[in-house]
Simulated assay, not measured.
Amino acid sequence: MEPVSLPKHIDDPIHLILWPADEMAAFVTCLIGGMLIGQLILAVAIGVMAVKFYRRFRDNRPDGYPLHAAYWLGLLPSRAVTIPNPFIRRYLP
């Protein structure tokens, strides 16, 4: 049998080029916005700053915080029976 190399951290998010996928999404959003308005250099600079601020935001909170915050704001609706509607803030009997 040949030895199999395992990654150091199994639960790490997918990395695309330099950044994890969630950080890359912030950069690509700024990049596409810059292409649409014709200011690519400015958008790249704003994208790098957005990744820096998002990384600082994400590192100071528990794992999965952005996903839970997106659900709480109603950005990730689900038709599942076990997941309540995020806009119902108070349940009455």
Score class of each variant (00 low, 15 high):
Met35Asp: 01
Met35Ala: 06
Met35Gly: 07
Leu36Phe: 13
Leu36Ile: 04
Leu36Cys: 05
Leu36Glu: 08
Ile37Asn: 09
Ile37Gln: 07
Ile37Ser: 05
Gly38Val: 07
Gly38Phe: 06
Gly38Gln: 03
Gln39Gly: 02
Gln39Pro: 00
Gln39Met: 12
Leu40Lys: 14
Leu40Tyr: 11
Leu42Glu: 11
Leu42Gln: 13
Leu42Tyr: 14
Leu42Asn: 09
Ala43Val: 06
Val44His: 01
Val44Ala: 02
Ala45Arg: 14
Ala45Gly: 07
Ala45Asn: 09
Ala45Cys: 12
Ala45Trp: 07
Ala45Lys: 14
Ile46Leu: 15
Gly47Ile: 02
Gly47Arg: 00
Gly47Cys: 06
Val48Thr: 07
Val48Glu: 04
Val48His: 04
Val48Arg: 01
Val48Pro: 00
Met49Ile: 14
Ala50Lys: 02
Ala50Asn: 06
Ala50Gln: 04
Ala50Thr: 13
Val51Tyr: 00
Val51Ile: 10
Val51His: 00
Val51Asp: 00
Val51Trp: 00
Lys52His: 10
Lys52Trp: 15
Phe53Thr: 10
Phe53Asp: 05
Phe53Ile: 11
Phe53Trp: 14
Phe53Glu: 08
Tyr54Asn: 01
Tyr54Ile: 00
Tyr54Phe: 15
Tyr54His: 06
Tyr54Gly: 00
Arg55His: 12
Arg55Asp: 03
Arg55Leu: 04
Arg56Lys: 13
Arg56Tyr: 13
Arg56Ile: 11
Arg56Asp: 08
Phe57Pro: 01
Phe57Asn: 07
Arg58Ile: 00
Arg58Leu: 02
Asp59His: 10
Asp59Gly: 06
Asp59Cys: 10
Asn60Lys: 12
Asn60Tyr: 02
Asn60Arg: 13
Asn60Thr: 09
Arg61Pro: 02
Arg61Asp: 01
Arg61Cys: 03
Pro62Ile: 03
Pro62Ser: 04
Pro62Glu: 05
Asp63Ala: 09
Asp63His: 05
Asp63Thr: 07
Gly64Cys: 04
Gly64Met: 05
Gly64Trp: 13
Tyr65Asp: 11
Tyr65Val: 03
Pro66Arg: 14
Pro66Ile: 07
Pro66Val: 04
Pro66His: 08
Leu67Asp: 04
Leu67Glu: 07
His68Gly: 02
His68Ala: 08
His68Cys: 11
His68Met: 14
Ala69Cys: 10
Ala69Phe: 15
Ala70Ile: 12
Ala70Leu: 15
Ala70Gln: 14
Ala70Thr: 07
Ala70Asn: 11
Tyr71Leu: 11
Tyr71Pro: 03
Trp72Phe: 12
Trp72Cys: 03
Trp72Ile: 10
Leu73Pro: 02
Leu73Asp: 03
Leu73Thr: 07
Leu73Gln: 10
Gly74Thr: 05
Gly74Gln: 10
Gly74Pro: 08
Gly74Ser: 05
Leu75Tyr: 15
Leu75Met: 15
Leu75Trp: 15
Leu75Thr: 01
Leu75Ala: 07
Leu75His: 13
Leu76Gln: 09
Leu76Trp: 14
Leu76Val: 09
Pro77Thr: 05
Pro77Tyr: 07
